[in-house]
């Protein structure tokens, strides 16, 4: 089986879906001739032509607003927002229309749209290029949001996102684009939206995370193993809808949970997960749920991002604290 990195796996999924369904079209800034600033759409313009791989004017709201019209009309647009920090001009279109058109028209119009968003930090990028804006999406009824942590999931999640009848924001952790390669089957498969995975089984404490942070949790697990703490790691994958069943089952088993995410803490998805756990089964907890997250500050520039981003030491420390409680 061939080895793919995360960027290549997404490229493979896009190409395969475009082969299968003529209605799938790509649009965004620099995605055509340039193949995307991260080369995720490399080669697709040559293969599918400029009617299906469109370089657009530099206008994020236009990219999403036009995609909404295309989706309503019957196409399946996959739009790229070049960087996380540039999604904000398009939030009005996403929140006011993509998320609401099905409900507003009582099902007459639908918006099968995928918005690809390279996201998160750790690559020493300039300001506005390292953000984790998932809360805005998850907080909006009518939108779905997914984020892969590995090439295999990336391909299957992209297939599922493109085939989904509702708008899906597909976050792509930039740091993982080329971090590692993995066997990715050419054959068709989907990773269902709404299903988390157990990245590592364990019995003492559940680490709940997504994207780049899954790897930070894996690193923390190694450190904790030396202290005889056996962690279970949940890769949430689907931020909305959230797989609360997998999370609860794990926490009921371990009795301890640490949630790890890059986005700022206040009203981050960690808050929702912690509340869900305590509402559903507070008595299964042997310790308070802990969060290891980005701080409630603007994402620092390159020199200081290491201070902001959760790392294995912070995660391990939090896990030890809940073990000692």
């Amino acid at each position: 089986m061939a080895l793919f990195n995360l960027a290549q796996a997404i490229n493979l999924a896009l190409g395969q879906e475009m082969e299968k369904d003529k209605k799938v079209v790509l649009l965004g800034e620099d995605i055509g001739v340039d193949g995307g600033v991260f080369r995720v759409t490399e080669g697709l313009l040559d293969k599918f032509g400029s009617d299906r791989v469109m370089d657009t004017p530099l206008a994020e709201s236009a990219i999403i607003g036009a995609s909404i019209g295309m989706a309503i009309y019957g196409l399946k647009p996959v739009a790229e927002i070049q960087f996380d920090g540039f999604i904000y001009p398009a939030l009005d279109q996403l929140i006011s229309h993509a998320a609401k058109i099905r409900n507003r028209s009582r099902g007459r119009f639908t918006c099968p749209l995928v918005v690809r968003v390279p996201c998160a930090g750790g690559i020493h990028a300039p300001e506005h290029h390292s953000e984790s804006p998932e809360t805005h999406i998850v907080h909006t009824p009518g939108l779905k949001a997914v984020i892969p942590s590995n090439p295999y999931d990336a391909k299957g999640l992209m297939a599922a996102a493109i085939r989904d009848p509702d708008p899906v924001v597909f976050f792509e952790p930039k740091k993982l684009y080329r971090a590692s390669k993995q066997e990715v089957p050419e054959k068709d498969y989907e990773i269902p939206i709404g299903k988390a995975s157990i990245a590592k089984e364990g019995g003492d404490v559940t680490l709940i995370s997504w994207g780049t942070m899954v790897h930070v949790c894996t690193e923390a697990a190694e450190k904790l193993k030396e202290k005889n703490i056996d962690v279970e790691i949940i890769d949430v994958r689907s931020l909305s809808p959230l797989d609360t069943e997998t999370i609860l089952t794990s926490v009921q088993k371990t009795g301890r949970a640490v949630i790890v995410h890059e986005a700022p803490r206040t009203l981050g998805l960690g808050a929702e997960i912690a509340a869900t756990i305590s509402e559903a089964d507070i008595l299964s907890l042997k310790a308070p749920v802990k969060r290891v997250t980005g701080f409630d500050i603007p994402m620092p520039l390159a020199k200081h991002e290491y201070l902001y981003l959760p790392n294995a030491e912070r995660v391990a420390k939090a896990a030890e604290e809940v073990m000692k409680f």
Partner: peptide, 24 residues
């Protein structure tokens, strides 16, 4: 299409619909 209350948001949907017409 349905009414669009947020002012000036709907011309982009029209552009998307027109783009789809053109592509198809």
């Amino acid at each position: 299409l349905t009414f669009a209350i947020p002012v000036g948001t709907q011309p982009l949907h029209a552009a998307g619909i027109a783009l789809a017409m053109k592509i198809m």
